[in-house]
Nucleic acid binder design. Structure first.
Lengths: 230, 230
DNA sequence: CGAATTCTTGATACGATTCAAGTGGAGTGG
DNA sequence: CCACTCCACTTGAATCGTATCAAGAATTCG
């Protein structure tokens, strides 16, 4: 939440909004598909994913969340979860009551716009993923995702130089790209062999940012990282 | 905008919000990529699409809009358009000044939540498209899109029995699904031959709704068509 | 009516899935 | 500490899906 300047007062309000918190284990559901939660979940630390299962048991991950993401602010107005949220690493999650959120929308327009903005950025990321799935090669799609994650993690100070912790398995990453594990692996190899990145020990290190962004045609505009008055 | 009950007063406010309107020809840009508009566009009538071009000239359509859709409410808070919006048919478009929108967020919380909800539904549709692109067969993806459009058009009374006007070319539809025109055509044929639907004269008619929804695994929950208190 | 799109179909080449088998590392219990 | 198991990763081969190229038919538009 560093896309706009917040008064101390507003920051305090945000913190007060999160009235409960809990730790989740890997693979634990943070919110289940079909649920009608009374609170919205903020990811305080860890990696989580939104996903949907198909009738044949395959899964598509529709979003990845990192520390600082308000994961299901959506449920505040959408009421019924049309997808689930799962912990991809041990996760520290905070919860904000929908009643408290409603209170904010009644009394704090500036903060409301900021929360709204947060969901809009989610939407922008979704659109970029659609583009990647439809019109990028699998290699470029993978490169693009790495660029995006690096950018987002850097914003919350979860990077060290050009590397970051990345707890997903290749199977989970395949579910993000919408391809099979086997093909994901074969897509990944050239990126390693060409020296664009390495991925060992649950850590991704980018070795050639210029070539990686060029391959991915990465343009960070959609992440709205510049501060603008709302 | 029929997902919540609106007071007469609020309906009037909404109408007053749209201070200008304009007609657009087919293929005309309603909003251009990279623009920083001072107003948001509502589609009063017609079909429009959000799109993004790749460096190699291919295009991905990330959203389809029908009458009643608030197309780029996003720009109100996102400021810079990371994609363009094009008219796929002659379009009647209304414009709401960002200043007036800000005014609404300052004074009318209930209306604000309704506008926010509108963008959240957009996001839910995006997620469903990601699932369709990643884990559905192309045939199921196409079927799913037809189901979705039928549902959305029915909500704004643009259907007649099981048919609706559909002005897109096959090339444009291919850009929605992220496949080539040739393949779209070959994907379409079985749906016709199996008697699920017909598509002639810019009109799609669904002949077998049960089998079409079954093929698509269509579950309309994500469209949030039920009225809920906000 | 003619010209230009759009749609349709076939052939070929490349991309991606599936099935199958093997490697390697982390954790467990004797 | 070692053998064992489990799981994630890697690789190869066969099969199926999708793109590209090309050409002809149908439709729309001026």
């Amino acid at each position: 939440m560093n896309r706009d300047s917040l008064s101390d007062e507003e920051q305090a309000t945000l913190r007060r909004l999160v009235s409960r918190d809990r730790l989740f284990d890997v693979d634990e559901d943070i919110v289940s598909e079909g649920a009608r939660p009374q609170y919205s979940a903020v990811l305080l630390d860890g990696f989580a994913a939104r996903y949907k299962y198909m009738a044949d048991g395959t899964r598509q991950i529709t979003a990845l969340h990192v520390a600082g993401d308000f994961m299901d602010l959506h449920a505040f107005l959408l009421k019924t979860m049309d997808h689930g949220i799962i912990a991809l690493s041990p996760c520290h999650v905070g919860f904000a009551e929908h009643g408290a959120l409603k209170e904010v929308t009644e009394t704090q327009p500036h903060l409301t716009r900021l929360l709204w903005l947060d969901t809009l950025i989610d939407g922008a990321i979704h659109r970029e993923w659609i583009v990647a799935m439809g019109r990028r090669s699998k290699r470029a799609h993978l490169a693009h995702l790495v660029c995006e994650l690096f950018y987002r993690l850097q914003a919350v100070r979860k990077t060290v130089d050009f590397s970051f912790h990345f707890p997903l398995t290749q199977m989970e990453l395949a579910d993000v790209l919408g391809i099979s594990v086997v093909h994901l692996n074969k897509t990944l190899q050239p990126l390693r062999h060409d020296g664009l990145l390495s991925w060992v020990n649950h850590t991704i290190t980018i070795h050639d940012w210029p070539r990686l962004t060029a391959l991915a045609q990465f343009d960070p505009t959609y992440l709205s990282c510049t501060v603008e008055p709302r």
